[in-house]
Write a protein that binds this DNA or RNA. Structure first.
Lengths: 335, 335
DNA sequence: CTGAAAGCGCTTACAG
DNA sequence: CTGAAAGCGCTTACAG
């Protein structure tokens, strides 16, 4: 970049009539600089349009001032999933004051090992890992390499990595209790993928709710996070249990599919079947009837994860291992 | 990171029994290394789990091996806009083979000047700028600083920056001709924002189509890229010109709004009013009737822009200043 | 084909 | 409060 044009700290020192040490102190806001020297340096900096060379800085400080956002998911889903977009927004908001840069990494580009090598190769000071799928070996590798990392979402593998997650269990428990409280007798659930913590936890919450109320907890069908998946799961449930009068879907998008099937089968919502979703996404208010759902704040999830990582990087003491963010039931029309 | 644990090139040299120069040559695949030396070095590298220090490398080579993706848009739109997600996917795909990293920057964090300073401060080797809005001063600043940059989308300001864009004019001209060919007499357009190249170009294409056919080109209403905007613009058009029998909307999302208004007014599509959109987004096939629209490949836009930048970074000669990607009409049911 | 040496632009003890 | 000096870990002419 602009070979010899770029002024160095050395030149600033010369222009300001001080030593390199002093210039460095001014730049880094270190104490022990006379006002006179500071003024001279500041003036020289603006005069020369000096910008510190980041590489030289990194080399000596052994820090890069950048953190990685690793989206541990192959293929297309990442980009089309609004979840990712919200996380990104939260991460960005969380970094706003930190003067750090965000390096985006997805392992569609590099294979897992290359990705880990890269992360551990001193390119970044820390990593935020969005673990969308099952038991990824990456977190364990980061830990063993000593790279500060925080996960978005509870990992399935039993690794000693801090994570931040929505309180999925409490949220789905609240949904279950709501349906019980409505006097529903045959309460089913369309669970999310069984290989994702988010699927497991939301199912567990519903199961606990059923157990509390002395209801059976085996009216379950599984679905991926798609409308069609939800529709198929709902059809499956109705096939086996035509008397179902309530269903808790592990995501709004699944609930949308369930609504479609119910409508096709001539079931009225909520009169015949009450439906509760999860997420409180934009979908929730565009359906007819509007969806009762469990609200989670995904952007906050990204922000908190970032804050947790930054705190760790500043070596703050007594950091909580992991955090759960509250979820709450939003009652609308469907249940 | 891992203070003194990380092995250096020096240690690799010692273990391999060669000089640092030789190790460096092996690492960088430079010619002039005996097979014997190469084997010894490779072995030492794996033995020590050596990873080159990027900062040291950057310092001496004056390159960072990273490029910036600058999303020049404040606030929330970026993240919720599927356009951005597709661009990101394309950019990522375009970088797949390049061993470079992507640094994501949005000026919601840093003010414009800080952003430009950062970009020109030697942090990145080049920049891809997604210019979603009007006449951003950023491209000009990058050019004057000598930072290689390529824009996604034609800039409004007259700067000497290469850009890659969809051929919006040809696409909307095709749409206009299609409506004319259908025998429609009163053809309107809902244009996009007048301060965005994409809005201007799509309107221009439609106008040219009208001119060709000797039709008036003043049946125009403006809208932002939203359903509600499209609905309002359609209402406005019908108010002033109740005899409209065709409308070209500058985006599918606008067309969706138009369809809503037409349906509310009891107008049948395409019998009473033919509708053509732009984008061929997912929306196009979920509407009733399915949307005739102009297809653009946004992911390809991101990929091509990235390829253009990488070519520039490798100092390839005779690069085209800018590129237009083809668009084509996809005829479905609405026109 | 190989190595000794200079140097990239900073920060950081250290001595004053 | 200030400066001279060492050193971070590489690459790159240069000389052999």
């Amino acid at each position: 970049m602009r070979p010899s044009e770029a002024p160095t700290l050395e030149e600033v020192a010369r222009v300001a009539g001080v030593s390199r040490s002093t210039v460095s102190r001014v730049i880094n806001n270190l104490p022990g600089v006379s006002k006179r020297a500071k003024v001279a340096v500041d003036q020289a900096i603006t005069e020369l349009r000096y910008v510190p060379n980041q590489a030289a800085r990194n080399l000596v400080t052994r820090r890069t001032n950048s953190i990685a956002l690793v989206v541990s998911e192959h293929g297309d889903r990442v980009f089309s999933d609004p979840f990712f977009a919200k996380i990104l927004r939260g991460v960005y908001a969380g970094m706003a004051d930190s003067r750090r840069q965000l390096v985006l990494l997805m392992d569609q580009t590099r294979d897992d090992s290359t990705l880990a090598d890269y992360l551990c190769g001193g390119h970044v000071d820390g990593a935020i890992v969005v673990s969308l799928h099952g038991r990824d070996p990456l977190p364990a590798r980061l830990v063993s390499a000593g790279l500060p990392a925080v996960l978005v979402g509870r990992p399935l593998a039993d690794v000693e990595v801090p994570y931040v997650d929505s309180d999925n269990l409490a949220g789905s428990l609240a949904a279950a209790r709501h349906l019980v409280g409505l006097g529903r007798r045959r309460i089913a659930s369309i669970a999310g993928p069984a290989d994702m913590a988010v699927g497991i936890d939301r199912l567990a919450g519903w199961q606990r709710g059923m157990a509390e109320a002395g209801r059976p907890d085996d009216l379950v069908a599984y679905s991926d996070f798609s409308v069609d998946g939800g529709a198929a799961a709902m059809a499956e449930l109705l096939e086996e249990h035509p008397d179902i009068d309530a269903v808790f879907a592990a995501a709004d998008i699944i609930a949308v599919g369930a609504l479609r099937t119910l409508s096709e089968r001539g079931k009225r919502v909520p009169e015949d079947v009450a439906v509760v979703g999860f997420d409180d996404s934009v979908l929730a208010t565009t359906t007819t009837p509007k969806l009762t759902t469990v609200r989670q704040d995904i952007e906050e999830l990204g922000r908190t994860t970032t804050a947790r990582l930054l705190a760790q990087l500043s070596a703050e003491a007594d950091l909580p291992r992991s955090l759960l963010l509250p979820t709450r039931l939003v009652v609308r029309e469907s249940a």
